[in-house]
């Protein structure tokens, strides 16, 4: 048995811990591993219909139920009427498909009246140049996020045609507006503001953000998708190429893992803006071998053997230590 003052031994051990902590900090290493919930985007050889979220192809995707809560971080706070969303993902090495499904008794597809609010859904990823997980509410100054926002009223514009004041209120009487078809009278539309458009190619807006109050329409609008409500359930499909180019957008690759968060708005509960149901970041793993395997790739095959060895050695050490301890 050692002859050493416990206090001196403690000083030695704590000194070692401090030094090891410094070494880890200098090497930018963490002595931890994430054990969070993972959504796996399985690789599929079957073509995924980009306009049919109820397609049978989704039977082959793992479903993960993600808990949601009211947004309580920034004003306006609240929402939270949708308690969970079921998330699925697939990829075909060219495009990523993300499917959100949630129960909603009402189908709210119009926001034209002041008292009406649409249903909506969003997925959020860290921007491709980000090295740490961003804050889950709109990211942060040094860790931006890329958000895909599906809007039910945009979906209605595509499915049934644009609904303006005359269509929503057919019996309205209006004064005569001279030159009412002149583009100069529609500055939002003329400036290319997506919210002002009457003809749409996608119901999904691609956005970027770096903190509260910085949410901005992205320069490139390349996210497709479709939302379909059926028997009290929404299914919304998001589709995008794996690599959209540029650090502002999320980048995906087979065999790689990123983070994903979800948000849902229930229009019939007056949810809009910050009033919504949000999740924290979960992990999104794209199945398949990476094009450029990392150092750690391939270790999974021998994992069981290594685990057994480590456990046996650890337990053996403990048993020996315990026997030494009991020896008079």
């Amino acid at each position: 048995m050692l002859r050493l003052s416990p206090r001196r031994a403690a000083v030695v051990v704590l000194g070692l811990a401090l030094a090891l902590g410094l070494l880890l900090t200098q090497l930018d290493l963490r002595l931890v591993s994430s054990q969070a919930m993972t959504i796996v985007a399985a690789e599929t050889v079957v073509q995924v219909p980009p306009d049919d979220p109820w397609s049978d192809v989704w039977e082959q995707a793992d479903a993960v139920e993600v808990p949601l809560s009211a947004q309580q971080t920034s004003v306006p706070k609240g929402g939270g009427s949708i308690r969970a969303v079921t998330a699925r993902a697939l990829h075909d090495r060219d495009r990523l498909y993300v499917l959100m499904e949630w129960a909603d008794a009402t189908r709210d597809m119009s926001a034209i009246a002041p008292q009406d609010f649409r249903d909506a859904a969003a997925v959020q990823f860290p921007a491709s140049g980000v090295t740490s997980v961003p804050f889950f509410c709109m990211g942060q100054a040094d860790a931006h996020v890329n958000i895909w926002h599906w809007k039910a009223d945009w979906q209605a514009d595509i499915d049934s045609g644009f609904v303006g004041i005359p269509e929503a209120y057919p019996n309205t009487a209006a004064d005569l507006y001279p030159l009412q078809d002149d583009p100069d009278f529609y500055p939002g539309r003329a400036a290319g503001n997506l919210l002002s458009q009457t003809e749409r190619s996608t119901p999904v807006e691609n956005l970027v953000a770096g903190g509260f109050g910085t949410l901005t329409t992205a320069e490139k609008q390349m996210v497709g998708g479709r939302g379909v409500w059926r028997d009290g359930t929404w299914r919304v499909l998001f589709v995008r190429d794996l690599d959209a180019g540029g650090d502002a957008y999320a980048k995906f690759a087979p065999g790689r893992t990123t983070n994903v968060a979800f948000a849902v708005w229930n229009g019939s509960k007056d949810e809009r803006d910050g009033l919504k149901s949000v999740s924290q970041f979960a992990e999104l793993q794209l199945a398949g071998k990476p094009e450029a395997p990392g150092v750690r790739a391939g270790l999974d095959r021998t994992l069981v053997v290594v685990i057994i060895l480590v456990v046996v050695v650890g337990m053996g050490t403990l048993v020996v230590a315990a026997r030494v301890e009991r020896r008079p």
Binding site: R30, L31, V32, S33, T38, V40, G294, R296, A297, L299, D300, L303, V306, I307, V310, V311, V313, G314, M315, L318
Partner: peptide, 19 residues
């Protein structure tokens, strides 16, 4: 001790869902 050993191991490898 098994939990501690696994925690240390997982800090250095990319573990599977089964792991």
């Amino acid at each position: 001790s098994a939990l501690a050993a696994l925690s240390l191991l997982f800090a250095f490898i990319e573990e599977s869902a089964g792991a």
